[in-house]
Design a protein around this nucleic acid. Sequence first.
RNA 1: GGUGCUAUCGUCUAGUGGCCUAGGACAACGGCCUCUCACGCCGUAAACCCCGGUUCGAGUCCGGGUAGCACUACCA
Length: 512
Amino acid sequence: MERRVRVRFAPSPTGALHIGGVRTALYNYLFARQHGGDMLLRIEDTDSTRFVPGAEEYILEALEWLGIGIDEGLRMNNGKIEAVGEHGPYRQSERREIYHQYVKQLLDSGHAYIAFDTPEELEAKRAEIPNFQYDARTRLAMRNSLTMPEEEVKALIDGGEKYVVRFKVEPNEDVHVHDLIRGEVVINSNILDDKVLYKSADDLPTYHLANIVDDHLMEISHVIRGEEWLPSAPLHVLLYRAFGWSDTMPQFAHLPLLLKPDGNGKLSKRDGDRLGFPVFPLEFHNQKDGSVSSGYRESGYLPEAVINFLALLGWHGTGDQEMYTMDELIKEFSLDRVSKSGAKFDYEKGKWFNHQYLQLRSNKELAQMFLPTLAANGIENPDMQMVATVIGLTKDRVNFVPELWEQTNFFFVAPTEYDEKSLKKRWKEDSPKHMTELLEVLESAPSWDAETLDGIVMPWIEAHEYGVGIVMNAFRICLVGAARGPHIWAITDVLGKDETLRRVRTALTKLG
RNA sequence: GGUGCUAUCGUCUAGUGGCCUAGGACAACGGCCUCUCACGCCGUAAACCCCGGUUCGAGUCCGGGUAGCACUACCA
């Protein structure tokens, strides 16, 4: 009775893919891979009014960047969207005909009915009656096929009257939902309303109907989605039953929500710019309202860092391990180790993860990634060997690739001014004298490498009792422009003899 | 308002009745390293929501309370 594991990620193309959605996709992916099953991607675009152009491409591109592979449905292939699989189409807007027959099935079996109440009428009703709900207690007082003669219903439809199909929820029944994370959840059907399943206005089903029909037809075995869906899970159970699909109903797992780092509530798309960190994987240019939202990729995040960070927001392995590769996650992940409570989004930890993964990347690779930042600072066609070297010297002090510039700028551009604080603390009365003498010592260096320089400079300092700190810090200011940076001989090594001496002379002129 | 879910350091979490004088990580703080700034290393501070019950024994099980969150659309 073991069923092939088939899971799906089914976003709506209503904008950029929220980071919480990314985590849902990730958990689905990990679960599928672990069980040797299939990960499907389906687009749920049944609300034509909320469609945002470019959102679909964005979602697919984001998943591709993160390494969340799609086995079936829609996916990116060389920058183009492709559909793979035998259960298509994978866009709900292209599945109209499929839904028609299932709407009819429910209508014919008496599990659903046609309703003509307009949105305005319903709004008025809700204003008039507190806590109004379209259900077993009220539907007989509304304009629907339960209260109107068959001929009238037909006449209205033929006359082009807009209508919806509602699910007929039987009252007072305890509906059981078995959740893989939360256990048994019981909800009485009285609190469920007769949900709209289909709207004739745009000839499209609503989420609930489309979702159940598609999951059934696509042979989904496990529905792993956000906790916001838990309240409607009983409705879905009832729908499976109405269709006669109870025996193949997928298992449910409702994931804890991602919460705002400050205050309370679930993390929303707006929190990103408000709190100063991205809530989207990629930068998104909303073609509908012209807004631009920052993304993890553009902020300098490595995909593996985002994956690791997200994986641990709501899930934890058996030990104290924090660093996980995707393969390790696939091996270790399990739904019963997913937390039940919501997780506040901790951006600081995300930065730490990126720092860790940055150290794992090769200097050569990082040099390539650093190119745009260099270009932005006027450094074109740099010596890549040299770039890799300076990155090796400084990468352990940054969290993001672009931050490398602050650490390495002096390697590319000689200081034109000198940091005042450093000067005050490290540039002493004797410094000009020391630097002048140092110049001579360096000139006489038989070769230009750390060992040699250290071998002649240190004894010279000692012989005159100048103090290592005093001399070296002044020297550092000449080369860097401030009291910071890697080991001094590492700097001279990259700069070379000519440039090193030139910088000391310049400093001598400027600082006196 | 109704229904549901949840509840361990500031944050993410470990903990499935004795191994818990509650462990790890991020952040914070202190120290070490050192020519500087960092990194790194070492250390410190920091939590079982409350009240009952079960039990020889409860962070862990049960009940109640409280709080937070989600849902309550012809949105997903």
